[in-house]
């Protein structure tokens, strides 16, 4: 039964970064692709994002970061999910992330990072292949 339910994705803006063009586009594209989408709105702390993710029973958290604070914010969200025993929630994201930072982020547990120019279609395909409904 679980296998057939719609994926629930949280699209989050974490930190003080106000650039929400990408987050809104990906949120709409996810919705149009048939996923259930929760958009956090702007200026969320890692704690707020994790609380929403758990409360909303999402399958994955997708973060958009264009502020250069990705090396702090991604690992922080993952650490908090672990603390809450919710690290079966996958974390992926996109934004202005220099290539050389990506291996470190993946090591910290970020499943995938999409950089400028990635099509929403390629992100949706990736989600379909890599994100599975959690057993709740």
């Amino acid at each position: 039964m679980n296998e057939n339910r719609k994926l629930r994705l949280l699209v989050g803006k974490v930190g003080l970064d106000g650039h929400d063009r990408g987050a809104k586009i990906i949120a709409r594209a996810f919705r149009d692709a048939g996923f259930e989408v929760i958009y956090t709105g702007l200026h969320q702390s890692p704690e707020m994002v994790v609380a929403t993710a758990i409360q909303e029973d999402v399958d994955a958290v997708s973060l958009s970061i264009l502020s250069g604070a990705h090396n702090y914010l991604f690992p922080k969200v993952i650490e908090l999910l672990k603390e809450q025993k919710a690290d079966d929630i996958a974390v992926f994201g996109g934004g202005i992330v220099p290539e050389e930072d990506i291996p470190g982020l993946k090591e910290a547990g970020v499943v995938e990072i999409f950089t400028p120019g990635a099509s929403t279609d390629s992100v949706i395909q990736w989600v379909r292949q890599n994100i599975k409904p959690r057993n709740l």
Binding site: G15, L16, D17, H43, S45, S67, G68, A69, K76
Partner: peptide
């Protein structure tokens, strides 16, 4: 930087990781 743009000091909890970045 973003903390300054939001009227927050560098030691604000929301400023972590953003000081001097943008």
């Amino acid at each position: 930087d973003l903390p300054t743009l939001m009227g927050r000091d560098s030691d604000d909890h929301m400023a972590r990781g953003e000081v001097g970045k943008e």
